[in-house]
Design a protein around this nucleic acid. Structure first.
Lengths: 214, 214
DNA sequence: GATTTACGATACTATCAAGTTTCGAAAACT
DNA sequence: AGTTTTCGAAACTTGATAGTATCGTAAATC
């Protein structure tokens, strides 16, 4: 069983539905929630294949077996669809290691993250980051919905390690997280080296070494 | 004097001119090298302001005071202009610390890199990385012209530190470089924390701590 | 059954940008 | 002077796509 799977039952961040649109009881035919799901899934698929710059609403509609009219009935524009799709994925796929052992936690977190990025979700993720550099709406969502919640969760775990005495009180947790995840992001985006379990292990080892004397 | 300025006389990587187009002696009016320079500079300016996805050839031409015909006379397409412009900047702005002292080198390199990214060039750089996620030509140039040369140069410096005994022979230099630069890239792209001299110092300290027991 | 709303399909409009062409003028060589 | 090539300016063509509108149908409420 993979690390990601073994952690998938951990607490996930619930994203509040922004719109009052969801299944409002009224007169006519209700919103087709299946179509909604298909559209969001299709958006991620297309995004992952061609990047946001080359993602078209026609492609999303065709992939979803839906109509463009349906898309624009529920989302104000193309970016809104993709951003909601990305947020949905975030709320599902954020396993996080919390075993009680510091060394173990660090390794499992890095291992799980690399596994998360390998393959399908890695390409989605790259597209997300790229879009965030060109469009402020994506940048905001990337920070608010992805980066910050994960960091807060990780910081809580590390705070408990501090209280248990496994981690020195004066360790800068922001810096620690950057040291852990920075190299992973770096290889993901620059592609200059392998991004696999061995690398995750090495980064973890190095991070832990940097803590012993701090 | 800034770290970047103090290092700006160091060896820079000479990029070979790809095209035989440059100043071929023939019959008619020769190529206007001033216009060429203006076009490349304008390309970077526009890129840095709006990102590659929103960069238009019209904007580049207008900014450069040139004609689109001139652009397409010498470059096959829009991406070619921008990629050459980025390559030109790389060949100029790659100061690298090599003082002979390991701790000093690490801190100066990180300091110089953060300074490089702060302000104008940081935005160019972000646009470069974003484009690399959507367009294979940019990705190739990013690795070949930017990442790899810098890493090779840094690895040579660290190899000398190994020979001097300042650095353990078994240290993985690829990993070391990822640990140094990964966190910087991370903050540059995710924007979740400050990217300043203090941060560079902290990353350097942490990196050095991770080396002492390795 | 009448009404209301959503649906898929499709045609449509409007915009924007890449790349081309034309033209008169300028700058080199012979 | 004549020739060749480039230049800037501007008009132009072409293609792609975001977003809208229409229409007949399906699924709910009253």
């Amino acid at each position: 069983m993979s690390v990601v799977e073994s952690l998938s039952n951990s607490m996930s961040i619930e994203v509040k539905e922004s719109c009052e649109e969801t299944a409002q009881r009224g007169r006519g035919r209700p919103r087709d929630e299946v179509a909604r799901t298909r559209i969001l899934e299709a958006a991620l698929e297309v995004l992952q294949e061609v990047g946001f710059a080359n993602t078209t609403t026609d492609a999303i509609a065709e992939r979803a077996g839906a109509s463009k009219a349906t898309i624009y009935r529920w989302w104000s524009n193309k970016a809104a669809v993709v951003i909601e799709a990305l947020r949905k994925q975030v709320s599902r796929d954020t396993p996080f290691a919390d075993t009680g052992d510091l060394v173990n936690d660090i390794h499992l977190q890095l291992q799980g993250f690399v596994e998360f990025l390998t393959g399908w979700r890695g390409r989605v993720f790259k597209a997300f980051i790229a879009a965030a550099q060109n469009d402020p709406a994506f940048a905001e969502s990337f920070r608010t919905d992805w980066i910050l919640p994960r960091r807060e969760e990780a910081k809580e775990i590390f705070e408990r390690h501090k209280e248990r005495g496994a981690l020195a009180k004066n360790v800068d947790l922001e810096l620690l997280l950057d040291a852990m995840y920075g190299p992973i992001y770096f290889r993901l985006l620059a592609g200059h080296g392998r991004l696999d379990a061995d690398f995750a292990k090495s980064v973890g080892d190095m991070t832990i070494r940097s803590l012993v004397t701090s």
